[in-house]
Design a protein around this nucleic acid. Structure first.
Lengths: 146, 146
DNA sequence: CAGTATCCTGAACGATACTG
DNA sequence: CAGTATCGTTCAGGATACTG
């Protein structure tokens, strides 16, 4: 995403990293516990694209390579989420919630993903103020600072 | 986004609507109160692209056209967020927060956007459980249902 | 299994010109 | 001001073959 007129905008800048077609799907797999090339490949991404996307995500600091070695095999790399990568979770959660609410099929018939707290409680995304009070989405307004 | 292997996934499906380069930027403008062609145009999108994106967002049900008429001018259309469109706010907020945390320049030097509650309190996105208790991002796990 | 290398195609993009 | 039309370019994506 080039867009010189929007370089100041964190949305545009985030999309520069996260906006390509496969990146968020690879991150989804990572959150589901996948770490290896072959596991990522199974979601349908062509190998050429996969290599490029993995490189890009490593360069952007969302994945880091970690060597591993199976019995009698050469050393290979796993792709592990960094702290920056783990912070993408709200983006994924927001997309999941929007898709399940507004896209056919089966809007509202129980989701395909479950997000849970360490205690096993289902969690959802919400806006909260500094005291931790939940604020309804429609009540939130956005403004540009300065 | 075609991806037959991922049609079940609400992330992939949401990206089908929201993933194009300019769509989220147009929605950003809508949240900032812009409604008219010329206002959208100012963000740097070429007119051809703008027409196509606006059509797509109307077709997807995120914008609706509403006629307006200035003194002595012909009737024109404004582009108004629908309920589905307003629900995109968490996606934008998540991208803003990720970008401001992890992308140069000036990560953490105070954001470019402010989200506020009706009472004027600053709000941020967070995971909450069914009792409204905030759960730390890193403590949340995702799993595929069924 | 874990990649790299090639080649092709299509869609979004960007610029520019034109119309009511 | 609010668009539509045209055109060239670029790049992600897709298919396939090949390597260690």
């Amino acid at each position: 995403m080039s867009m010189p007129a929007n370089r100041w905008c964190p949305i545009a800048r985030s999309l520069g990293v996260l906006g390509q077609k496969w990146n968020l799907l690879l991150l989804r797999e990572a959150f589901l516990g996948r770490t290896r090339y072959g596991e990522f490949q199974r979601i349908g991404v062509p190998t050429g694209t996969l290599g490029a996307r993995l490189d890009a995500l490593v360069d952007a600091g969302l994945f880091e390579r970690r060597p591993y070695q199976e019995q009698g095999e050469r050393s290979r790399d796993e792709y592990i989420l960094t702290a920056a990568g783990r912070d993408v979770l709200p983006v994924l959660a927001a997309l999941i919630e929007w898709g399940e609410s507004h896209l056919s099929p089966a809007p509202g018939t129980g989701g395909t993903y479950a997000a849970t707290s360490p205690e096993g409680h289902a969690v959802r995304l919400a806006f909260v103020d500094d005291r931790g009070t939940v604020v309804d989405n429609d009540a939130v307004t956005v403004a540009r600072k300065r």
